[in-house]
Structures are given as structure tokens and as C-alpha cells.
Design a protein around this nucleic acid. Structure first.
Lengths: 145, 145
DNA sequence: CCTTTATTTAGAATTATTCCAATTCCGACT
DNA sequence: AGTCGGAATTGGAATAATTCTAAATAAAGG
């Protein structure tokens, strides 16, 4: 299920080109960092992770690149309450479970059938572009992050 | 369906007492402001609304009082992305529809049966204390706020 | 190469919120 | 009534995450 790094890079390059954007080392390394470890890091955490590879990268650039990736539909931005934004490379429709103790985030699969039922509670005239479903509580002992 | 002001006040007083907290004019006026107009104001907006009644009230107090009301389960705090927190007096389980153009927020009723199905997608071991369901998109022409 | 335009960068600015320390208020108890 | 102690309020300072700005750098096309 994991895509080899070369294909990741190709995918990124394609999507950027598709939006008329350039493929830069910073964007590549950030995208790779997210793909390697599919937890849900904050911009700060991403910054820390990519520094070894691109020592001079600034936090502003990390924010810029992450926004670009989100715009290209390569990455999903996730928010819990008013905490720092987190970034997620799982593009399948899914919910998030936020563990209040550990702060860990778990992806929860949403069956297509349920997705449809959820969409159906909207009264006529409402058209939803995105749907967010978030659980807060306690996750099992063995944290999968 | 609307509760008369006197009962509101009683309800507030009871809940505060129940948590060993005092009933202050600031808390009362803020609670009343929220009940009167069930849109989803920010702390700033609440501040602006209650100033006429309690001219000297500070923004810090508004934040304090709102937090108190949330803790007493009299008010629900709602967040969209990383925008300012909003406050909602509808305590029935419901979803939120956030209009991206106008910024308006609409409450959407969630049938109990659907609520149950949503809860059921959690794998064993996960226990959710709260569930948030948020739609982003376009709402009908005639905004109800 | 040279130009144009995109991107990166550091640091300043912004926004919402929380913290802090100093009053003020309220209720209980003499 | 007078006083004590804890709560609550207040204004202003502090914080945290993010965005803005203007200058420097890099890439792509001619």
C-alpha cells in the first residue's frame, strides 16, 4: 500500500505542474516528510523534521509549502478546537479521533454508505463542499498515533 | 419553545449553584444575550452586545464567563478551522453548517439513529466523549443565520 | 546569458486568547 | 453592622500560531 519515494515525487511534480506551480526542494522534502510518517504533525513539527535535510528552511516556508500542498489536494489540513493546525496525507474520506489525554490523532474510516446518510441530513438548498467528523475522547491503550 | 427570561435566570442560577459558583450580573447578562439571539457570536461580538447593559465589562470577563457557561453545560463552544471560537445555546445534539461566503452558521439536526450509526464506526476500545460534525459550503439564499 | 516571475526568507505584525496582579465583590460568621 | 476569605472582575501585559512584508534568491524560457 505504500508508494515508493520515486512515485511520490512524480505525483507531487505532476500536481504542482497541474496548478502551474514549481517543484522546489522545500516542497519535496516537506511532502516526503509527511508521507514517511503519517501521523498528524503541526507546522512546527514538520519544520523540525525537515531541518536536517534542508537546514536553512524557515518556518514561513513550511507554512507556505503546506498551504500549497493543501491547495493541490495532496494534503489535508486538520484542526482540533483552536489548537495548531495539523497535516494529514490520508486523502480517503475519513474521520478523526482526538485522544484528549495523549493528544494523539487516529484516522477513522467512514463507510461510503454512512457518508451518504450524513450528507442527507442537510435540508434542501444546502450544498456541502467538505464534511468534517471529529471524535474527542479516549483511545485504546496501544496508541497507533 | 422559547423559555421566558425569568426561567432562564433560574436555570442559570441553578446550574451555577450546582457547580459551587456565584451568580453575577456579568454572567447573567452574557447568558441572556446568548439566549435572546441564538446566532453564534464570537467573544468579541458578545462583548459588544453586553456593553450597553454593563458598560464596564471587560473582554477578559466575557471570556471568563463564557468558559464558565460552557463548563456548566449551558453553552456549547464551536470552532471552525482556526477562526475565533463561537458560542451556541442549542444543547440538542446537532451539526453545524458553515457558509463559506457569508460566514453564517446554521444548526443542523442530527437524527438519533444517525448519531448512533456514527458512533458505531469507532473500532473497539475507542470511547468518544464528544462528536463534532461540521459542514462547509454554501447555504440557501435566504440566510437564517 | 538575461529577464521575468515564483519562491524563499527573516523578522515584524496580527489575532485570538490567556495570564497576571490588583482591586472589588459577596456571603458567612461573629 | 463589621470583618474575613475566597471568588470574580478588570486592564494590561504576555503568549501562541499564523500571516504579512519586503528583500534576496532561484528557476524557466527565450
Amino acid at each position: 500500500m505504500r508508494i515508493p519515494p520515486s512515485e511520490q515525487a512524480t505525483h507531487l511534480a505532476e500536481r504542482l505542474a497541474h496548478s502551474g506551480l514549481r517543484n522546489t526542494p522545500q516542497r519535496e522534502v516537506i511532502y516526503r516528510a509527511l508521507m514517511e510518517n503519517c501521523d498528524h504533525p503541526t507546522a512546527d513539527e514538520v519544520h523540525a523534521r525537515v531541518r536536517p535535510a534542508v537546514a536553512s528552511i524557515s518556518l514561513a516556508t513550511v507554512y507556505n509549502c503546506l498551504e500549497t500542498l493543501v491547495q493541490c489536494d495532496l494534503v489535508r489540513q486538520v484542526n482540533f478546537e483552536r489548537g495548531p493546525s495539523r497535516y494529514c496525507v490520508n486523502l480517503h474520506p475519513h474521520a478523526h479521533f482526538h485522544d484528549e489525554q495523549t493528544g494523539a490523532t487516529h484516522d477513522i474510516h467512514i463507510p461510503a454508505e454512512l457518508m451518504k446518510r450524513i450528507r442527507d441530513i442537510l435540508p434542501a438548498g444546502f450544498s456541502a463542499k467538505t464534511i468534517e467528523l471529529t471524535f474527542h475522547g479516549q483511545s485504546p491503550d496501544h496508541p497507533v498515533t
